[in-house]
Structure formats: C-alpha cells, structure tokens
Amino acid sequence: MQPTGMLGEDGIHVDMNHLKKGEVNLGTSIMAINFKDGVILGADSRTTTGAYIANRVTDKLTQVSDTIWCCRSGSAADTQAVADIVQHHLSMYAVTNDEQPTTQTAAAIFQDLCYDNKDQLSAGIIIAGYDHRHGGQVYSLPLGGSLHKQSYAIGGSGSTYIYGYCDSYWKENMTEEGGIAFVKGALSEAIKWDGSSGGVIRMVVLTAKGAVRHLYLPDQAYEGPGKQPKAV
C-alpha cells in the first residue's frame, strides 16, 4: 500500500490522521463549554466519506451516563466503540460502588482507552459532564491520548477556523443564554469555513436539572427550533 500523508522533517513517515480505506470520517466541528450552571456541548451534523456527505443529520453528542456526555471527532467507528465501552464501564461503576461516577472518572476511562490504543485509534473526544460535587467540567482528549482539563474545549477539523473567535468572545461564568449564543456563534463560523463541517447545530445543556437537547437549523438561520422535548 502506498503510504499516505506527508513525510516529517526528520524523514519519518507521519500520518496520525490516516483512515482505513472507505472509513467514515467525522470531519467535524465540536465543542463544550463551562457556564454558570453547568456545561453545554455543541456539534455540527456532517459525516463524510471523502467529499461525499454520508450523513447530513448526524448526532455527534453521545451520552455515556446520566449527566456525562461526550462530543466525538475522528473515525466514527473508533469513537462509537470507545464511547460504548466507557458507557458500559460507567454503568458498572454506578452499581458496584453505590455512587454515580464523576466526570473525572469518565475522563480517566476515556483516556485509558485512547492512550493505551493510540496506535490503532483515530479519536479526538471532548468529555463534558455535571455532578453535584464538582459542578460542570470539560475535558479535552486529543489524538495522542493526553487529557486536558479546560474552561472550554473545541475540536475537529472545523475548530481550527474558530480559535480566534472563541479566544476573543470567551467569558467565564456566562448565563445559559450567553453560553448558547457563544457555542452557536462559534459553530456557525466553523460550518461556514470548513468543508467537512455542516448541517444543523446540536447542543446539550447539562445542569443540576439534567440534560436538555437543543437543535438549530440552517434554514432558520440557526435561530430555531431551540429546546427539544425529552424523548419518550
């Protein structure tokens, strides 16, 4: 097989983003932020195989326990497998230890999987969760498997276009409305400039009251419909 990617300056062939043939890529814009009452996760909805949009209404926001969610980027197959394993671990944790897992616990398990299998995986994950003891927390877990606690985290191919936007407009302790506007503003810019990002904007707001989904559509200028009813 011909190597893909590019040669590093030291002559070693470097291609961390390499996807297996035909693999579905979440060339993506994802983010999660801390705000006054908890955390907000956000993502676009485009999944591509090359230039073809395999799914235009993807849900990249994945629940791993009651109030711990993650945003997935990289290989769809890899990140789904990792999220499924973490979800299993966390549900076992809750029953064997008589207490809900914290966001730290989730982040630690995600890292264990992504670091130990870094050679096989292409997964960039943002973990965000809420618990009564620690409040809202955001962790970033980029490609190599390092874990970073952050005020807000952005990820995926589209994130490179919004580093400036986020750094300029970021404020700590925003209200829920402020937080939603921030996430929406950032993701709509990423969608605008990144060909691998697009479709709708999905969000999840995690607070003491639980998880609430939001949806914003491009044909409504990302103004609505907004809050989604709980699934039954």
Binding site: G8, I12, V14, M16, K118, D119, P142, L143, G144, G145, S146
Partner: peptide
Amino acid sequence: TQHTQSPVV
C-alpha cells in the same frame, strides 16, 4: 507489530 510512534501534543 507497528507502533505509530511520533509525538502528537
């Protein structure tokens, strides 16, 4: 077995 060893972050 190959290890993709190159630093990322």
